[in-house]
């Protein structure tokens, strides 16, 4: 007996597919070339991949401000976070990683920098920060404001974080100079 349900077969436009693929590679290539030539990337956001972790041996920064915010995470459209703004900073032994479950296994996509990373205009939204910290001219204060995000803020002229681990939801840099960058994908056990 003939099957009454006939599968609907779609066709892929080869012209559209190859042109889209080629333009994607071209854009990526241009980005990598510009990054490789100058060593500096401009206006770099890292978002939309959900929570990821930032770890480093040492961060030395100037012009630090912290205030609360609500933002997206991998599991919620609106979760409490803290925004950390640092005007200029240098990070030693930076590692950014995100773990994905593929099938029954976990893989870790990791970006490392073997040389000190220089960043200006950092905005870092984190749910959790663990580190040994040093501050100069640290101020925690309240302000009489109807905007709840402005009611409390923490500032310092300099910030030093050592042996840090930050659960991060969003990262933006005006400029980043990341020499010795390496991207790895590895299988991990969890």
């Amino acid at each position: 007996m003939e099957n009454p349900v006939q599968p609907l077969e779609g066709t892929t436009s080869k012209k559209v597919f190859w042109s889209a693929l080629a333009s994607g590679f071209l854009t990526l290539g241009l980005l990598l070339v510009s990054f490789g030539v100058s060593g500096v990337a401009y206006a770099v956001p890292i978002a939309g991949v959900g929570d990821f972790y930032v770890e480093f041996d040492k961060l030395v920064g100037k012009g630090y401000t912290f205030y609360p915010k609500m933002g997206k995470t991998s599991s919620s459209d609106s979760a409490p976070q803290g925004t950390n703004i640092i005007e200029t900073l240098t990070i030693d032994n930076l590692q950014l990683y995100k773990d994905f479950q593929v099938g029954g296994e976990w893989i870790r996509v990791k970006i490392t920098a073997s040389k000190p990373v220089q960043i200006s205009g950092l905005q870092h939204d984190a749910g959790l920060i663990e580190a040994n910290a040093k501050f100069e001219n640290l101020v925690l204060e309240e302000n009489n404001s109807s905007d709840w995000q402005k009611q409390f803020q923490q500032t310092s002229s300099t910030i030093v974080l050592e042996n840090a681990k930050l659960k991060t939801h969003y990262l933006f840099q005006k400029t980043i100079n990341m020499n010795g960058m390496k991207l790895t994908v590895e299988r991990i056990k969890k």
Partner: peptide, 21 residues
């Protein structure tokens, strides 16, 4: 219950800064 806190130099060992509902 503090409303303002300032310090010239601060050293905080094993700091945890957490924001939760």
């Amino acid at each position: 219950v503090a409303h303002y806190m300032k310090s010239d130099d601060s050293v905080i060992d094993q700091l945890t800064l957490n924001t939760v509902f």
